[in-house]
Design a protein around this nucleic acid. Structure first.
Ligand SMILES: NC(=O)c1ccc[n+]([C@@H]2O[C@H](COP(=O)([O-])OP(=O)(O)OC[C@H]3O[C@@H](n4cnc5c(N)ncnc54)[C@H](O)[C@@H]3O)[C@@H](O)[C@H]2O)c1
Ligand SMILES: NC(=O)c1ccc[n+]([C@@H]2O[C@H](COP(=O)([O-])OP(=O)(O)OC[C@H]3O[C@@H](n4cnc5c(N)ncnc54)[C@H](O)[C@@H]3O)[C@@H](O)[C@H]2O)c1
Lengths: 252, 252
DNA sequence: AGGCGCTTGTGAAGGCGTGCACAAATCGCG
DNA sequence: CGCGATTTGTGCACGCCTTCACAAGCGCCT
């Protein structure tokens, strides 16, 4: 995704000191994508009463290899105790800090159709470090509607509201044809992270991150494997099963 | 334990590709994940009136590197013409065949709450090779409800209906606590591909593919980059931007 | 026919990520 | 106080993926 010169690392001790804007250890992208999964598993374990957990236990709960887990965690410093494991509460705190979840981030949602309504009503946002602070749509008949305590505003107000509410993340749930225009509006308003549900490629200036969730793509990938599995069963003397029926994360 | 139905249409290759289509080129997983994106871009180009497209043009439309695109296509025995490019219609046909989209796959949806309703009403399924043929829920007050022309059935009927309708793919949109139980039911019914929207790890036998879509994880990854960007701007003499703000697919 | 420009397909190199295997570190107990 | 059991942190090797760079192929124009 991005990259900037690695030449000389600006002496950032991964030490600790959460206090302020210390530079970041540059974590591998693959590791970052797994941290949220570890976090979720840790919350489950914590609620179940566990004080500490071994890499073996946590990796099982998160569905990954234990060596991978240890290496991931080692990237953000040593917070484990050999012979014992990891302190659940401390590790939660650390991962939340690295992910920037210690401050609740303001999110806005654009496009309140079918999917937008579901997202607006999703409580998984609030419980995982985010708060939907504004809803926008271009359809006059939708503007003014109240959803989950928020009033749908016209997209023309996005620029002003984004600044007022300090919105950092925008979620696009409009048809594909409108998505690029919406992205442009978001970028102009200073939003630097976008989650896009519309099936299209967005073009944004550098410095803005875009992640895309495309349901049809997920299904088509599954369809490929169905196709492949079907053709294997038709083969003579085929091995009965593909060895690796593994959990596959969408991320990678 | 599972398996095989799939009666109709033995191995009919589309178009003319002569020869045994039975054996599959084993495509790199990364390539498979990109094929749907190429397919979408190709459909757009086709509707825009293009007959052929160069790797440069298609890769731009799909948001990837052109060399990567060419290598991906070469893996499936590409049909480009040097000096000209790729025939749009032919390439669509080829990719759809590889992904197994030439046969419309039957999908069932379990859990008709907030998200389930949105998914049931999504027309992106039908237009991309899938058909929702059944809806299931455990809540008696939901059973019997009609959504988009389908009646919500009780999950106890899943086993029977799955066989009747030849369902290959199941979508889970229940709370996390119920997801594993639902997955077990799906597997017992012979479903070999699962798309899971619940934030939890599913355990399934080998031979069954699971893909997971977790909205909160996507947001948390964005949050990390926000955090990192914020700490960079605080650095002395910081360059204004990271160079390549690229599109990131969730799959990844 | 021949030359020229354009585009594909691919060899090769480098980077990244994964997983093994083990040394180092810590705890509990005798 | 020392020893064994346990678990972390990591060096290393391997394989996958990406990217560059270029020869080979194709069509068009002269
Ligand atoms: N419904 C689903 O389950 C689902 C699943 C996956 C992906 N998607 C994708 O999500 C997007 C939304 O799907 P949907 O089913 O909710 O569609 P929808 O048509 O129900 O809703 C789209 C909403 O966007 C609004 N809109 C249109 N142009 C706008 C603009 N320029 N600015 C602001 N708002 C605008 C419309 O007024 C409408 O309210 C689509 O791109 C779709 O492909 C939907
Ligand atoms: N709403 C969203 O936008 C959203 C976004 C991302 C992820 N999710 C996840 O998707 C899942 C569903 O979310 P939701 O908001 O629709 O929840 P919801 O509570 O509105 O709906 C859940 C539905 O599942 C049904 N259900 C419960 N147990 C069942 C069982 N054993 N068998 C069959 N059906 C059962 C319930 O009756 C209910 O209809 C959750 O795991 C949630 O975390 C939701």
């Amino acid at each position: 995704m991005s990259q900037q010169r690695h030449g000389s690392t600006p002496g950032n001790a991964p030490g600790d000191r959460a206090g302020s804007v210390t530079a970041f250890p540059d974590l591998p992208e693959a590791t970052i994508a797994r941290l949220p999964e570890y976090l979720r598993a840790l919350h489950n374990l914590g609620e179940a009463g566990a004080d500490t957990v071994s890499s073996e236990g946590l990796s099982a709960a998160a569905g990954v290899n234990s060596a991978k887990l240890r290496k991931d965690l080692s990237h953000l410093g040593s917070y484990g105790t050999r012979g014992v494991g990891y302190d659940v509460a401390l590790l939660i705190e650390q991962i939340e800090y690295v992910l920037g979840l210690d401050q609740r981030r303001a999110v806005c949602l654009v496009g309140l159709g079918n999917l937008g309504h579901a997202l607006a009503g999703y409580d998984g946002f609030a419980s995982r470090g985010f708060k939907i602070v504004a809803l926008f749509d271009a359809d006059a008949s939708k503007v003014g509607e109240e959803i989950q305590g928020l009033i749908v505003r016209h997209i023309e107000d996005l620029g002003r509201v984004a600044v007022e509410e300090n919105i950092a993340i925008g979620v696009i749930a409009t048809p594909a044809g409108a998505a690029q225009a919406v992205a442009d509006v978001l970028v102009d308003a200073g939003v630097t992270s976008i989650l896009n549900f519309a099936p299209c490629v967005l073009s944004v200036p550098s410095g803005v991150d875009v992640r895309k969730v495309d349901l049809a793509i997920e299904l088509q990938i599954l369809s490929f494997h169905e196709h492949r599995k079907a053709s294997l069963t038709a083969l003579p003397g085929g091995r009965s099963a593909a060895a690796a029926g593994n959990q596959e994360a969408v991320g990678s």
